[in-house]
């Protein structure tokens, strides 16, 4: 169990395993946990088990897609108890600055050492579209706020924090949707705001992502921030199409959907595509790891990572 109040290792900002792996130059793996609609901790542990086998950190989503599930702070706290290293996702949609700054301290006190600052999907796409959207912060002002709490030991009000939260700061990026030309610039802004690692949305369009990464390298951002490319297995052509039109910010090229359509066993094909994507990501300069989002397919994650061979060089 990490000890939040001892100083982080030399050159680190936190006790995070993810930070250690990234700073040591190893290819990092993170995976997303599908939050249960349940109040039973066992459901969280069950979902975490297949991810924990391969992941350096497990992402606890914060009502992604504006759908209500167990909270990210609750899941993160449970995961630290079980010895996993969670990524506490914070969306700006549901809470204002007072709630979020308090939760950041609470999470850090419970042993959380990674956060991911997100804007959040609009409430309209979720299961309770009548909810009031908050968006007091956006992902960048949130990043800067937590950085201020950590480095300057201050709340946004200027009040002093006795023991600051030791957190590895992350943000998301979505390279495959418009405005394409400005996505790398926006990444630069996130780094400026305090992002130390980036987890991207699903990437199925490798050429488009390579173009993005080329610009990222031109801007020198690959030297300033660790980028984890988002991947995940598709279940079927129909599911892919549904995702494309109903989940904000997901771009699946027609070629990938065609391939799924023609496959005899779509499930197997989806897994194979994911393995190939991971192998391709590994070859792209400036990519420091992958972030696996296997919606309702957590059990496949460790198999996918093993098949991709990206952990083969690690001493385990």
């Amino acid at each position: 169990m990490s000890q939040p109040y001892s100083a982080p290792p030399e050159g680190h900002v936190s006790h995070s395993r993810l930070e250690r792996v990234l700073r040591s130059g190893r290819f990092a793996i993170t995976a997303e946990l599908n939050p249960p609609d349940s109040a039973d901790p066992a459901d969280v542990y069950e979902a975490a088990r297949p991810l924990g086998e391969v992941a350096d950190a497990i992402n606890a989503t914060d009502a992604s897609g504006a759908n209500c599930h167990m909270s990210s702070i609750g899941i993160s706290a449970l995961l630290t108890r079980a010895g996993y290293s969670p990524v506490y996702q914070i969306s700006c949609r549901d809470r204002n600055r007072i709630a979020i700054q308090g939760d950041v301290l609470g999470a850090a006190a419970m042993g959380v050492s990674n956060v991911l600052c997100l804007t959040g999907d609009g409430v309209g796409v979720g299961d309770q579209p009548g909810a009031k959207p908050v968006f007091d912060f956006d992902s960048l002002s949130l990043l800067r706020t937590i950085k201020t709490m950590r480095d300057e030991r201050k709340f946004l009000s200027g009040r002093t924090i006795k023991n600051p939260p030791q957190l590895f700061l992350g943000a998301a990026e979505n390279p495959c949707i418009p405005p394409y030309d400005w996505r790398p610039e926006r990444l630069a802004k996130k780094v400026e705001a305090g992002a130390e690692y980036i987890q991207t949305n699903y990437i199925y369009d490798v050429p488009l992502f390579e173009k993005f990464m080329a610009r990222v390298r031109d801007l020198g951002l690959d030297k300033k921030v660790y980028i984890l490319a988002g991947v995940g297995p598709l279940a079927s052509a129909r599911a892919a199409r549904w995702m494309r039109s109903n989940v904000p910010g997901i771009h699946v090229p027609d070629a990938v959907i065609d391939r799924m359509e023609k496959a005899e066993k779509p499930g197997q094909e989806g897994k194979k595509i994911c393995v190939e994507l991971i192998q391709q990501m590994r070859e792209i300069a400036g990519v420091s790891g992958v972030h696996v989002m296997a919606y309702r397919k957590e059990h496949e994650v460790s198999e996918i990572i093993r098949e991709s061979g990206v952990l083969a060089s690690r001493k385990r």
Binding site: R93, T119, D121, G122, F135, L140, S141, N174, I177, K189
Partner: peptide, 15 residues
């Protein structure tokens, strides 16, 4: 609609 002050979110639609 999200009153973002620092750039587009990750949900921008094609076009």
């Amino acid at each position: 609609p999200k009153q973002l002050r620092n750039g587009p979110c990750g949900g921008v639609r094609p076009g």
